[in-house]
Amino acid sequence: MLHAQLETVRIALRMRWHDSNARGWHRPVFRWLAYIVLLAGLWVALSGRLDGLFLAMGIISATAVLSVTEAIFRPGDPVGFERPPARFSWLAGTVFRLVIYFPLLLRDIAVANVHVVHLVLNPRMPISPSLVEFESPLRTEASNAVLANSITLTPGTVTVDMSANRFIVHCISETMRQEIQEGVLLKRVAHVFGEKVEVPKLRNLTSAEEVKW
């Protein structure tokens, strides 16, 4: 049992430290460092102690957890997506723009909630749901993931499926469908990740046959 785990760790280490194609912040070292800082930070926050012994234990356990899970969640080149640019300036700019993006998202969440409250408490319940699909023009995995979650959190729309670049979105009313059609959110996410996009066309899905993938 232990032997098998050690073997996994060994393979993971060998594969990750020698990723010769990686440049810039794609180098595995940076990802490992980022994860260790994150996990050890979580450890400190949850234990509430900052003395040397606890910090060392935190870093050791973070590294141990990482070496086991790295083999499972290995971020390879996912099908249908591009790798983001390897430049550090891109990374720094994206993190900065994400920080600015969050207040905007919070405002959208507030609007979404007022909207749902209106729909649910209205005795006539003015909903007219529809299912639409579109091809996301975003190229990287992270930007598509952010778009999917933003769509879910903002007014009247829930992302049902996102595989490769195909988004299936459930809209609760006609106005909300319009909003997706205009692609406000899409443009904003594209700006955060420094990508240029065209707003895609929507297609209605009405039967189970059209949903098939």
Partner: peptide
């Protein structure tokens, strides 16, 4: 699906 709207938005906030 419509219930999911209520849950993912209002319950989260």
């Amino acid at each position: 699906y419509t219930r999911t709207h209520a849950v993912s938005k209002t319950d989260t906030l």
